[in-house]
């Protein structure tokens, strides 16, 4: 598989605190990559460097290089808006806007200049279908998104992210606030989406990582300890610390 994201010697500082230490790794295209590791080890931080959401945190400093599709995303001629259009994000807590379901999903396309009702209608429908939500909400598109259940809201947030046409989807513990059935639905969804999108997901649930991902990355204290095929990482880890973590001896 070809790498779409290449990270090289990345260091990230929040003020004086170094949250990422010399991270180098690759993310394969059209596959699911899972980040695992104990709390506070820098998984979300690395995820946020990929769509530059860290830019908004004051006092963040970055060294090193991240290339997506061969282009350095931290070079001066990059527009973060265009980058984020290509690299979508789903957050830990569902975060719908207090608008209708339709307006939520159409929010991104409208930002990027799509005005025609018919075109928007098509995008909303296909995005909601991709997020496996269309059948549940097609008669209630004008209802507030806040009236959906947590799992539906999260799938709507996925639809909203898909609606702008990204290549990469970042999911930061997107199922941790959900019940087992909604979680399963989103895992199945990820499986379907991986044929079209590159997915990077942070998860605290090692079973989830083992179930859905192709590649797993294990973090510890801001360092990437090991990354390899999920099967290999869970059955035959090459680092002792990885083995300790996945066998539940710490973290």
């Amino acid at each position: 598989m070809q790498a779409i994201i290449e990270i090289e010697k990345l260091n990230l500082f929040y003020g004086a605190f170094q949250a990422l230490k010399n991270v180098s790794m690759e993310v394969p295209e059209r596959a699911i990559t899972a980040f695992i590791g104990p709390s506070g080890c820098g998984k979300s931080t690395l995820l946020r460097t990929l769509n530059r959401m860290n830019d908004m945190i004051q006092g963040t400093r970055i060294e090193g290089k991240i290339e997506i599709g061969g282009a350095d995303i931290y070079s001066n001629d990059v527009h973060v808006e265009t980058l984020r259009k290509k690299v979508g994000m789903v957050f830990q807590q569902p975060n719908p806007f207090p608008k209708s379901i339709y307006d939520n999903v159409a929010y991104g396309p409208r930002l990027h200049g799509i005005r025609k009702k018919q075109e928007l209608d098509e995008i909303v429908e296909s995005s909601l279908r991709s997020a496996a939500l269309w059948d549940e909400v097609k008669d209630y598109l004008k209802r507030s998104a806040l009236s959906l259940s947590g799992g539906q809201q999260q799938r709507m947030c996925i639809a909203r992210a898909l609606a702008v046409g990204p290549d990469i989807l970042l999911m930061d513990e997107a199922t941790s606030a959900l019940d087992p059935i909604s979680t399963l639905k989103i895992e199945e969804l990820a499986q379907e989406l991986k044929d079209k999108y590159t997915i990077v997901m942070v998860t605290h649930n090692m079973h989830q990582a083992a179930r859905v991902s192709h590649q797993t990355v294990f973090f510890l204290n801001g360092e990437v300890v090991e990354y390899s095929d999920t099967e290999k990482l869970f059955s035959d880890p090459s680092d002792q610390r990885t083995e300790d973590y996945i066998s539940g001896r710490f973290g």
């Binding site: 959401m53 908004m56 808006e81 980058l83 259009k85 979508g88 719908p96 947030c157 992210a161």
Partner: peptide, 15 residues
């Protein structure tokens, strides 16, 4: 306004 909503908007590529 909850910061989550702001983040949602920025993450979709809004200025």
């Amino acid at each position: 306004v909850p910061v989550e909503m702001k983040n949602a908007s920025f993450a979709l590529g809004s200025t």
